[in-house]
Amino acid sequence: MGKAKVIILRTAGTNCDKETSFAFERAGAATELIHVNELSRMEKKFDDYTILAIPGGFSYGDDIASGKILANELKFRLDEGLRKFIDDGKLIIGICNGFQILVKAGLLPDLAGDYQTIEATLTLNDSNKFEDRWVYLKNSRAKCVWTNAIDKIMQLPVAHGEGKFIPKNKAVLEQLKKKGLIVFEYVNEFGRSAGYPDNPNGSVENIAGICNTTGRIFGLMPHPERHINFYQNPRWTRDRKAKNGEGDGLAIFRNGVNFAKKYL
């Protein structure tokens, strides 16, 4: 069994590509940083990979709206290859700007199942500004291959200005709940729902991450790739016993990579 092959998608303004690649490598995958132009020129093909990771950053400067331009590029120019990739049951993770892109391309939550209907958005934080802070996340027991068997409260950083998750309407929210597509909720350190700043952006129902109905496409605002190692946690100097331990975020990458190795 070879290594899972991961596309780390790059374009103008992508900026979390290197550390996302590092996280996947740590989880046992082989990664390639691929510029979106290489896909549209057909120099690289989705078909040759099993995981697509859309890392954080400010794709195209977040001009017009965050993630919008790359979302449209995926939706209108790369749709053929991407649809097949999804149809083949392959995995996608979108982190921060990547999550915004998946939602704005209509790939998350995709209740309609048509890979294009926009059913939610990520919009300006209630605080009306970009904020970098660490949050606690509760796994809502979604059937998501990326978060399988993660049961502890996770600590990850967020760093965004537009992370407030808003579903299109009540019906969408109900479906998200009913189908178990809400993957992470912002909580306080005791695992309970709390207001700002524990919910850093005012997301509806504290939603921090969701998946599609197959559980294979996953997007989240927090950055798991920034907590791969103990020393990235802001509290490490307060608890030195956990020395050389791994960070909470690694489990997410390992889940994806192991699933891909096993089934794809």
Binding site: N15, C16, F130, A159, E225, R226, Q232
Partner: peptide, 19 residues
């Protein structure tokens, strides 16, 4: 401080706000 991403690239070990 919080308006500035101080953790991108993943290398932050001792951050500007502590405790």
């Amino acid at each position: 401080i919080r308006q500035y991403d101080h953790e991108v690239q993943g290398g932050s070990v001792l951050k500007p706000l502590q405790g």
